[in-house]
């Protein structure tokens, strides 16, 4: 592989790690709220969170572009307050990957938390534990395999993201080009052999992440 190809692999993996890290805490927190609390508007939030799963990724990308563009409501605010540009920068890549993989994390994490017997959490409370202690000593350790599987699933999804990324981050060589966008472009320009190399790397990464995730999910049953 050429140094340029290595750069793209490292950048894509780095962005996938960053986006997964960004959504980990809010994703697990939301999953807990969905699994353990009853609140008004719960099903609305559930639906909104799941939308990127079924919406064409290009549409999600378009929405992000309008929201975070310099004239969009969020983009304008970020620029005037912090001088931060989002769209067509590496930040837009991380944002697109985060939004697209969020539903997978939340769904898997929610299922993992729901599998923890609530009687054990109740027991911890009667033994004097507050809500944080119950979460960190009972819920989290008992749901850990499922949570880890969800994290890997989100990471794998982020690695392969294309539609939303190309809308909101474009394909700027050395700045926002990821594995998928580069493969697309290579094929367009007739660089099939390079495309195949990158496709092989994608396949290996995705396979490893999914395999581990599946293995973790199966182990949970025992």
């Amino acid at each position: 592989m050429t140094p340029a190809e290595w750069q793209i692999v490292a950048f894509t993996a780095g962005m996938a790690v960053l986006s997964t890290a960004l959504i980990l805490v809010p994703g697990v927190a939301l999953a807990w709220c969905l699994a353990r609390l009853r609140w008004r508007g719960k099903s609305l939030v559930e639906t909104v969170v799941a939308l990127p799963l079924v919406l064409p990724p290009v549409v999600t990308g378009l929405v992000l572009l309008k929201l975070f563009g310099r004239r969009g409501p969020l983009g304008h605010w970020l620029y005037s307050e912090f001088h931060l540009d989002i769209v067509f920068t590496w930040r837009a890549v991380a944002l697109a990957l985060a939004v697209m993989s969020f539903p997978l994390l939340v769904r898997t994490a929610r299922a993992a938390i729901e599998e923890v017997n609530p009687a054990l959490e109740q027991m911890a409370r009667t033994l004097g534990a507050g809500e944080w202690r119950v979460f960190f000593t009972i819920t989290l350790p008992l749901a850990r395999r499922g949570l880890l599987a969800g994290t890997l699933l989100a990471f794998a999804r982020a690695l392969g993201e294309f539609g939303a990324t190309i809308m909101v981050a474009g394909n700027i060589p050395g700045v926002t080009t990821t594995l998928s966008t580069d493969i697309y472009q290579l094929v367009q320009l007739g660089g099939d052999s390079h495309a195949w190399t990158l496709a092989g790397v994608s396949l290996a990464l995705a396979f490893a992440a999914l395999w581990t995730s599946e293995w973790l999910m199966r182990g949970r049953k025992h």
């Binding site: 009687a119 109740q122 027991m123 409370r125 009667t126 033994l127 004097g128 534990a129 507050g130």
Partner: peptide, 10 residues
């Protein structure tokens, strides 16, 4: 429950 000081064996 955590402040009740009541032991529970379910």
């Amino acid at each position: 429950a955590r402040q009740r000081g009541i032991g529970y064996v379910p």
